[in-house]
Design a binder for these strands. Structure first.
Length: 418
DNA sequence: CTCGGCATCCTAT
DNA sequence: CTAACGATAGGATGCCGAG
C-alpha cells in the first residue's frame, strides 16, 4: 500500500459567507466585503461573535468575543443574525458536491470535510487540478469560497487548509513540512491548545519546528508520555488516522444551560434538570441507546465548574429515572452557592443490535444519524437553543425568565425544521 | 500492578 | 471599566481503593 491522498475542505468564514450569499440574493450588500460579523443571538447581552469577515478581522475582532466589544473596536460594524435552516442547506449542498469525488468522505463539522482520494488517480489523475475543480465548482454553483488542503494524511491536509485564506488550495506534502509548517507557532498545531502551548513554552518551545526536533523523552517531562508521542508525531506531520466515512454512535448525550438569573434553589434547578433529561433521553431513545451512567454539571459565579456522576444498576432510557438520578446527584453535591450553569449528561451507552435485522430500519437510522451530526455541529457552535427537535416541554410555573425565553425560542426555531 | 470509578482538564466545533 | 464568553462531545489524566 502506497501513500494516501487526503483533501481537507473548509468553508471560509462559513456562517458569514452563507449569510452573505443569502443577503446578496435579496439585493443586500456583500457582507464579506465590509466589516461584518455574525452574532449568535442579537437580542442577548451574552451574544458573541460567531463569524467575522476579513475586513472585520483587520479591526482586531476575533471569534468568540462579545459583540459589544467588537462594536467598540469597529463602530461601523455590520452585525447580522444567524439563519440555521439556511446554514444546514448550505452545508448539505457543499457536502453533496464534495461527495461526488469519492465515496470516502468524513463530515468533520458543519463546514469541514475530509476526502480520501487515495486510489482515485485513474479517475482524477491530477490531484491539484481536482482540488481546484472542487473549490471552483463550490464557488460557481453555491456562491461561497472554500480552502482545500491537499496532503498524505488528515493532519497535514487540515493544517494546509488553514494556510492563507480565502479561496485557496494548499499542499503540505512531506518535503514541504519544514518550510510551510515548522515556522508556525506551536499553538497553530491542531490539538495544541493554550495549556499545551504553555507547557511547551516551559521547554522554550514556541514553533512547530522546535517541537518536531525535541526528543520525545524531553517532551514527556511536561506533557506525559502519551501526549509527548502524539505531539511529536503531529509536529513531524505524522498521522495514520483513517478518513472515517461512517457516522459513529454517540458515546454520550448531554444538555447544559447558562441562565440569566442565578440559580439559588433546588426547585428551579430541578425544573431545568427535568427539561434537560427530557431532551437528552429523547435523543438517546431515537438512537436506540440506554445509559448506564448519569451525571450533573454546575458552574458557580466564579466560573468554577464541578460535576458529579453515578453508575446505575441497570441501563435505562426512561426520562423519569434519569431525572430522578440527576435530582439526587445535585442534592448530594451542591452546597447552595448561586449557579450560573446547570447541566445533565448520560454516558456508558448500551445499544441493542436488533435494528440490524431490518435493512430498511438500518438505513433510516443511518440517515437520521447523519442528520444528527449536522444538527449537533450547529449546537456545538451556537448552543442548544439554535436547533432542537420539537420535544421540549414546559411543565413549570416559575421557571426563570431566561430559561422560559429559551424554551420559546426552541419552539420557534423548530418550525420548518422537519 | 491493574482496573474501574470518578472528578477534572483539555481541545475541538 | 475590569472582564465580559455558549453548548456539546470525546479523550486524557490523576487519584483512590479493590482485587
Amino acid at each position: 500500500m502506497g501513500d494516501r491522498l487526503i483533501f481537507h475542505i473548509d468553508v471560509n468564514s462559513a456562517f458569514l459567507s452563507w449569510t452573505a450569499v443569502q443577503q446578496l440574493a435579496s439585493g443586500g450588500p456583500d457582507l464579506r466585503e465590509i466589516p461584518s460579523i455574525i452574532g449568535g443571538d442579537p437580542s442577548s447581552r451574552r451574544s458573541i461573535v460567531t463569524a467575522k469577515s476579513i475586513p472585520a478581522k483587520k479591526y482586531g475582532i476575533v471569534t468568540g468575543e462579545p459583540v459589544a466589544l467588537a462594536m467598540r473596536k469597529c463602530p461601523n460594524l455590520v452585525v447580522a443574525g444567524s439563519n440555521f435552516d439556511w446554514y444546514v442547506k448550505c452545508s448539505r449542498a457543499f457536502k453533496a458536491i464534495c461527495q461526488e469525488y469519492t465515496p470516502t468522505m468524513q463530515s468533520f463539522s458543519i463546514d469541514e470535510v475530509f476526502l480520501d482520494m487515495s486510489g482515485m488517480h485513474l479517475i482524477y489523475p491530477d490531484p491539484l487540478a481536482t482540488a481546484y475543480e472542487i473549490k471552483d465548482r463550490i464557488y460557481s454553483e453555491l456562491g461561497f469560497t472554500v480552502n482545500v488542503g491537499v496532503a498524505n494524511n488528515k493532519l497535514c491536509a487540515k493544517m494546509a487548509s488553514d494556510f492563507e485564506k480565502p479561496n485557496k488550495v494548499h499542499t503540505l506534502f512531506p518535503d514541504e513540512i519544514e518550510k510551510k509548517m515548522w515556522p508556525l507557532p506551536v499553538g497553530d498545531l491542531f490539538t495544541c491548545g493554550k495549556s499545551s502551548a504553555a507547557r511547551l513554552k516551559s521547554l522554550n518551545i514556541s514553533t512547530i519546528g522546535q517541537l518536531a526536533n525535541t526528543p520525545v523523552e524531553q517532551l514527556a517531562m511536561v506533557l506525559g508520555e502519551r501526549s509527548a508521542i502524539h505531539f511529536h508525531n503531529y509536529a513531524n506531520g505524522i498521522d495514520n488516522s483513517p478518513v472515517m466515512d461512517e457516522v459513529e454512535d454517540a458515546k454520550g448525550y448531554s444538555a447544559e444551560n447558562t441562565v440569566e438569573d442565578d440559580l439559588v434553589d433546588l426547585e428551579n434547578i430541578n425544573r431545568i434538570l427535568l427539561a434537560q433529561a427530557d431532551v437528552v433521553c429523547a435523543r438517546m431513545r431515537a438512537d436506540k441507546g440506554k445509559c448506564r451512567c448519569v451525571g450533573v454539571t454546575y458552574r458557580n459565579l466564579d466560573f468554577v465548574t464541578r460535576s458529579h456522576q453515578k453508575k446505575l444498576k441497570e441501563s435505562t432510557d426512561v426520562t423519569d429515572i434519569v431525572y430522578k438520578t440527576a435530582k439526587d446527584l445535585i442534592k448530594e453535591c451542591w452546597s447552595g452557592e448561586p449557579l450560573r450553569l446547570i447541566g445533565l449528561s448520560v454516558t456508558d451507552i448500551d445499544r441493542d443490535g436488533f435494528e440490524q435485522f431490518s435493512l430498511f430500519e438500518d438505513e433510516s437510522r443511518e440517515k437520521r444519524k447523519a442528520l444528527d451530526s449536522t444538527l449537533d455541529s450547529i449546537r456545538g457552535k451556537y448552543g442548544n437553543w439554535a436547533v432542537q427537535r420539537a420535544s421540549t416541554i414546559d411543565t413549570s410555573k416559575n421557571v426563570n425568565r431566561k430559561f422560559k425565553a429559551e424554551q420559546e425560542n426552541n419552539r420557534i426555531n423548530s418550525k420548518g425544521q422537519k
